[in-house]
């Protein structure tokens, strides 16, 4: 039965509040009770992070949408068995990360990216101009180079960069999301950041 009283969907765009729940326990209880509005609330809170993770990992807006859709259905089906020990955000992002890994494994031997590949537009991502960018560098070009470098990272390093640096998860949360130790996350991030800095070096020097 359609719930006519459901509020219109308004995604949260604020970075700080994007990953926080006002009452996580209550939301988990409602998800367990298969409350459809609770799932909508979860998507309103975490949809941006889910979509950012999927699009950055896959660089394909349609595939990413399928992943997020599947993840929401999985959350709905598996919520009754969710114990809540891991944290809702970590659990949901883990589902998305696992689905992305499955897809990436399947497309391991596909053709490479074309020369003029725009990693931001192709993935359906958007960039916000940095207000305090005074280094005389073409910011748009810098971001394209950065996204290409992220795309070239091994998937496990890419996941770590997205979760920690792009979405702002703590090391513990990122480790729990990916099912690895904090030390492993730090190691992946160290290598990933070194590769990204290396990719940006010519622009910074030029």
């Amino acid at each position: 039965m359609a719930q006519l009283g459901a509020p219109p969907f308004v995604p949260l765009l604020n970075t700080e509040s994007r990953l926080g729940f006002s009452n996580e326990e209550d939301l988990i209880a409602r998800l367990r009770a298969r409350d459809l509005d609770a799932l909508g609330e979860l998507y309103r809170e975490l949809g941006g992070a889910m979509t950012t993770l999927a699009r950055t990992m896959l660089r394909d807006a349609d595939e990413a949408a399928d992943v997020v859709e599947d993840a929401l259905l999985k959350v709905r089906d598996a919520a009754t068995g969710f114990r809540g020990t891991r944290g809702l955000r970590t659990w949901v992002l883990r589902i998305v990360a696992n689905r992305c890994r499955d897809l990436l494994r399947r497309r391991r031997f596909t053709a490479g990216r074309p020369e003029d590949f725009d990693p931001i537009a192709e993935a359906g991502l958007r960039s916000e101009p940095l207000a305090s960018w005074d280094e005389g560098i073409d910011q748009a070009r810098l971001l394209v180079v950065l996204e290409r470098a992220i795309d070239a990272l091994p998937p496990e390093q890419r996941e770590a960069v997205v979760l920690r640096d792009r979405l702002g998860l703590s090391y513990e949360e990122a480790a729990e999301t990916l099912g690895v130790s904090v030390a492993a996350i730090k190691s992946r991030l160290f290598r990933a950041r070194a590769s990204l800095r290396e990719a940006l070096k010519p622009l910074a020097e030029g």
């Binding site: 799932l39 975490l46 979509t51 997020v68 859709e69 259905l73 958007r126 916000e128 950065l146 640096d165």
Partner: peptide
């Protein structure tokens, strides 16, 4: 500096996707 650059690129939740999921579940 790198983190600041990385955080300027992101995606928003898609309201149409939620409509689709809701319709499927209903």
């Amino acid at each position: 500096r790198l983190t600041r650059l990385l955080q300027t690129v992101r995606a928003d939740a898609d309201p149409a996707l939620w409509t689709r999921v809701r319709a499927r579940l209903e």
